[in-house]
Design a protein around this nucleic acid. Structure first.
Lengths: 346, 346
DNA sequence: ATTTGTAAAGCAATCGGTTGCATAACAAAT
DNA sequence: ATTTGTTATGCAACCGATTGCTTTACAAAT
């Protein structure tokens, strides 16, 4: 457990001042190239490692990004985080990750922790019942940048990174309509959240354009859990006229539901065609394969992190952009395909 | 963007020395109770927040724990991380999370980054091709504690937190034998990894005890990907005598395989009974429900983090314990159940 | 020979807490 | 009145890197 090497040790060995060593290590223009090489070699030789704390203390920044997500244990979030980690790592930023567990209260507590940890910036996907950004006011006041992704609320001070959920909901619904569905049930999450409200809007728009009936009976707002997927089947069985199409705003819930539907004697997609959302791995496992909206989690994470870091380095002003829209894609699999033979598909 | 409050500001307002303020805030015994209350109130009132960097610089510690996992985007790892985050958060430790993407090379790089970030301790689950712990020597030399979880290599210097994989493999196999399987195919991951090697050992032991035949034809080492699950079905179809039981060391792979088996005309569990591993959410979605080995990810994360923090606080000496064994559990669902009627199960 | 210019390096203060070692204040004991 | 003990607080030196402002050294210009 030998002692830690500091720039003072290097300075002594090289008969230079610590200031010069510091500048040399930071590639400061006022330092002679030879000196830089000398210092770099010596540092390597002595096994020097910079003390971030001293540096951060002096520089008044932390090289740390806070991330608040609703849940860590979701396939989609994992890929987002994976993307963020990659980018942050490359720019030698650290990530502090915490989860709100879908509760504003916890989200507020997390925000406070992040604030006290003095993160340089914040990447947040909102809890399902969050309906304003007041708990981030401390950040705004201090000029600490905040980027919202996926689950967002539009606001002047911060970038939103999202997909066009309305368009995605529209695409999903149109697809069902094209498969001949006349009576499409939409199962959604908390309508406080943009992602669900927008998808619902897209769904309604598609119905409207095609002169189909919607209405309260065909719109179910749930928590999109496994249990909700099971309950849904009972609901369907209780309906006077069951639906012939099902658009569920979460793959996991949709997959559970398909299984339960089949067990209740419904045939998918013949009796009921199903479309999910997210392209969770589960959609490939279920039989028939689940038609779904794919959107790039990894990329969303990368872009969010990169935008934040660029802003922190002064390479991008957040105020110029306001919303970054990523592309989504309808992935057609067996669960909805009535027109073409489905046996050729996974 | 008002100026940051420091203990000096508090000291000035209260006409105390910064030293007293610092001690008061840290609940030092030599400080009068009244003074402590006074300081605490003033700090609150002025919106003081401690500067971790100054503190860490002086205290020579970072309050940061490094975590290296093979992949972030796995259901199991998410729950582990979720548990770690919870514990760390409660003890006001930060987590730096990085992924090795199953490559030693990246794992070595990650370890170096962690070292340079001066983490107080390290929680690691090894990449599939890691076969020694040399890249952690820098940590051992500095006395920085290392805890391995799930994917481990036994070594003097560090705790292992695992389940009894051999027993779990044994249990899974015995279950299949009890269901009447005579010819059980085991699909496993890289045998460099304890988890897979141990499960295989348990499988062999169970066969041996019941006088069943195993052998190379019935042991497949793969990467346990989706594709491997599909390939497996072709392999089975190519066999002179197909197996009647399948023990696959990963749920996702098992689930894919079940879907493919059904599409190839096999009946599960009648023709082939299947047991997976991990109790991934997917095992509830697939039809029939996947029999699997459940083990507590959240708890594993919590215990790993808590053990590390306890050790850092001097509450636990790592050398005393060496392996912490968590319980696993066989969860029986439809995919393997031949003896009892399966219709009552999910 | 003196001034001016430029490149390279050093001085010393600073960031904000922490902590070993005094010191002060006051009560109790001698 | 002096010593001893106890409790509460202050002084000042850290921790290690950064950076505004000088200073030094030496070449070029006058």
């Amino acid at each position: 457990m030998q002692k830690e090497i500091t720039i003072y040790d290097i300075a002594k060995q090289l008969e230079l001042s610590p200031a010069t060593v510091s500048r040399a290590l930071n590639d400061h223009p006022a330092i002679n190239q030879n000196t830089k090489t000398l210092v770099a070699n010596k540092a390597m030789e002595m096994g020097y490692r910079s003390n971030m704390f001293a540096s951060n203390l002096r520089r008044q920044r932390t090289k740390t990004i806070g991330v608040i997500v609703p849940r860590l244990d979701s396939a989609f979030m994992s890929t987002v985080l994976s993307g963020m980690e990659k980018v942050a790592n490359e720019s030698s930023y650290n990530l502090i990750i915490s989860q709100s567990l879908e509760s504003v209260t916890k989200e507020i507590a997390n925000a406070k922790t992040m604030f006290d940890s003095r993160v340089d910036g914040l990447l947040v996907s909102l809890a399902s019942d969050t309906d304003n950004l007041d708990h981030f006011n401390t950040f705004f006041r201090k000029g600490i940048p905040l980027i919202l992704f996926d689950r967002v609320i539009a606001q002047k001070n911060c970038i939103n990174i999202v997909i066009d959920n309305q368009k995605a909901g529209y695409d999903a619904t149109i697809h069902l309509i094209n498969q001949g569905c006349k009576r499409i049930l939409h199962v959604t999450g908390s309508l406080k959240r943009n992602v669900y409200a927008d998808r619902l809007r897209g769904y309604k728009l598609a119905l409207l354009e095609h002169g189909l009936t919607g209405g309260a009976e065909l719109e179910r707002s749930t928590n999109l859990t496994r249990q909700d997927g099971l309950d849904l089947v009972n609901y369907i069985k209780s309906m006077a006229i069951p639906p012939d199409g099902l658009f569920i705003a979460s793959d996991f819930c949709a997959a559970t539901c398909i299984t339960a539907l089949k067990q209740s004697g419904f045939s998918v997609p013949t009796d009921i065609a199903v479309v999910g959302f997210n392209d969770d791995p589960v959609s490939l496992v279920i039989d028939p394969g689940l038609t779904t909206i794919h959107y790039p989690g990894q990329e969303m994470g990368e872009i969010a992190a990169q935008s934040l870091i660029n802003h922190l380095n002064g390479l991008l002003r957040l105020s110029t952009t306001n919303t970054i829209l990523l592309n989504h894609e309808l992935v057609v699999r067996g669960s909805s395909q009535r027109v073409v033979s489905q046996s050729t598909l996974p």
